[in-house]
Amino acid sequence: MLTKTSRRKALLPPQKVSIEEYFRAEGKSIYKHEYHDGIIKKMAGGTFNHDNLAGKVVTFINLFLEENNLLYLVNGSDTKIRIEQYNKFVYPDAVVICEKPEFYQNRKDTISNPLVVVEVLSDSTKEYYRTLKYEYYRTIPSFKEYVLVHQDRKHVSVYTKQPDATWIVRDYDGDDATAILYAIQQCPLSLKRLYRGLEIANP
């Protein structure tokens, strides 16, 4: 049973911490946390499908880049992204950088110039990724493409920024589809290869 003191504490707004405090705590933690304008939020652990899909995306993009001798860098979920306008540090599932990373205050674990961001959706995160997190990413000048990979069905959505700063969304479904990443020289992501070996329920 909650005491009066514990109830009062539960009603208080969370205490804000500085960016420096966040980085110190994150460096010691075995779990990942995002920073949202002074509030630290623990990230949920990924499922088997989530981790498998995120790893395959990184692998397939890297293979395409090597085969075509393209100067892009691909990192997985340990790289944080700085979102200056909203004072946030977030973890993507994968990120592509054009040629050279721009590190936040020379921190080698945090970049500020993502070109492409990949997120693998779950039931608990899909609405956030489609709406608020997409809005946050769009404030980054270098950001040109957003890739959302479903883990409960064979479906990939690609949001691509146009020259007039509008965005086009292309949806790809099923084994016969191949998602195209236009920001990376039309890099193809075959859904058949992406979802191979995973148990995916029929929609």
Rank of each mutant, 00 (worst) to 15 (best):
63 L>M: 14
20 E>K: 15
145 E>K: 06
122 S>L: 03
150 H>T: 08
54 A>W: 02
26 E>Q: 15
62 N>K: 13
99 E>S: 15
169 V>W: 13
118 V>M: 08
129 Y>L: 05
174 G>S: 06
81 I>P: 00
183 A>V: 02
81 I>C: 07
47 T>D: 01
114 P>K: 00
11 L>N: 05
169 V>H: 09
127 E>I: 11
122 S>P: 15
65 L>P: 00
128 Y>R: 12
87 N>G: 05
52 N>K: 15
147 V>K: 01
140 I>R: 11
84 E>W: 00
193 R>P: 06
148 L>G: 03
55 G>V: 01
143 F>K: 09
102 E>V: 02
101 P>C: 00
33 H>V: 05
182 Y>C: 03
125 T>G: 03
137 Y>S: 03
16 K>D: 07
11 L>M: 12
145 E>H: 01
195 Y>K: 09
165 A>R: 15
100 K>M: 15
172 Y>F: 10
26 E>G: 10
174 G>K: 08
65 L>W: 14
142 S>A: 08
71 L>M: 14
73 L>W: 10
71 L>W: 14
128 Y>E: 04
64 F>L: 04
76 G>R: 02
178 T>V: 13
49 N>H: 13
193 R>S: 11
118 V>C: 09
148 L>E: 06
100 K>I: 09
18 S>Q: 11
115 L>V: 00
109 D>K: 06
72 Y>T: 10
55 G>D: 07
203 P>E: 10
41 K>I: 03
146 Y>S: 00
